[in-house]
């Protein structure tokens, strides 16, 4: 089919472009501005070129935080995607159970990040938290304030609790769109439970899974509020992710130049990784 070209269509997107300019492009440009200049106050700026970028990329601090981020995202995806699929498969397809399950699933998603952090901070405390007390009473020495492993476990459980629902809801939407005839045909063809999943359910969930995967990757890679509230980046630097480090640098130390450079690098990493995931997944989709 011939496509119609009409340049007037650009006027239709103009309001969005203006909004995006004010909300994203202009702030981003100030960051770019800071990242290539140095200042000693008094609104005096000196050209610094790529110095700040070099500083950031040569610092161990950056690479350590980046490694933590990658490990954290990998663990989150490895848990939440399969868990979300399993829960979605076991949710009822009709009847009174559907609204009940959907509301239960949606609840964690409605809670603001810092509240989630506070809930878990209190919940996990050894002295007054229910979880902390229970775990301690089982004879396990659990303390997320002092032990890095415990801090990580707490953050991961918290994120799984908060965000697995998103994967569940997306997968569930994919599952309920499968017509009954597919399941009937599979019965007639003598397909096993695994074959039904592998050849009917998984292919139908593929698109929503792609979205779930990208959202969970981007969100977990940008995690800030929960570790800030629960661990504050500690113990030591064990939960200092890029975002936490960035805020320390920009607001704690007021190193605006390196912080701006780090912001841009951080942004580019997320953009690049998301693009790679998207391309890989959609290409395999096209090939079938």
């Amino acid at each position: 089919m011939e496509k119609t070209w009409n340049n007037k269509a650009w006027f239709m997107v103009l309001p969005v472009l203006v909004l995006v300019a004010f909300s994203a492009v202009i702030p981003l440009m100030t960051v770019v501005n800071y990242s290539v200049q140095d200042t000693f106050g008094n609104n005096e700026f000196f050209w610094a070129g790529t110095d700040w970028f070099q500083d950031v990329l040569e610092s161990d601090r950056f690479w350590d935080a980046l490694t933590r981020n990658l490990i954290f995202s990998a663990i989150i995806l490895a848990i939440e995607i399969p868990l979300g699929i399993v829960i979605a498969l076991n949710m009822p397809k009709r009847g009174i159970g559907v609204p009940i399950c959907l509301v239960l699933m949606a609840l964690p998603l409605l809670i603001p990040w810092n509240v989630v952090g506070t809930i878990w901070q209190v919940f996990g405390r050894v002295d007054i938290g229910l979880l902390g007390r229970v775990v301690a009473s089982m004879g396990i020495n659990y303390n997320y304030v002092q032990n890095p492993i415990d801090a990580w476990v707490t953050l991961i459980i918290m994120d799984v609790w908060h965000w697995t629902s998103l994967v569940v809801l997306l997968c569930y939407a994919g599952l309920v769109s499968i017509p009954d005839a597919y399941y009937q045909a599979a019965k007639i063809d003598g397909a096993s439970r695994w074959s039904v999943f592998r050849y009917i359910q998984l292919p139908k969930m593929k698109r929503v899974l792609l979205i779930a995967f990208l959202l969970r990757f981007m969100d977990s890679f940008m995690i800030y509020t929960e570790p800030f509230v629960v661990t504050g980046g500690g113990p030591g630097n064990s939960t200092t992710f890029l975002s936490i480090d960035l805020v320390k640098m920009a607001i704690g130390q007021f190193d605006l130049g390196p912080a701006a450079a780090l912001s841009i690098i951080y942004f580019l990493i997320i953009l690049l990784l998301s693009w790679i995931f998207y391309t890989v997944m959609t290409t395999s989709d096209a090939q079938g």
């Binding site: 005839a181 597919y182 009937q184 007639i188 063809d189 003598g190 397909a191 050849y199 292919p203 079938g288």
Partner: peptide, 23 residues
């Protein structure tokens, strides 16, 4: 059935072989 039910990700050959292989 009235509307086509096919296994998207399989080839035509595998689709036809599916009921036999399951048995």
């Amino acid at each position: 059935f009235q509307f086509p039910v096919i296994y998207d990700t399989m080839t035509v050959y595998d689709n036809l072989a599916f009921p036999l292989r399951n048995r």
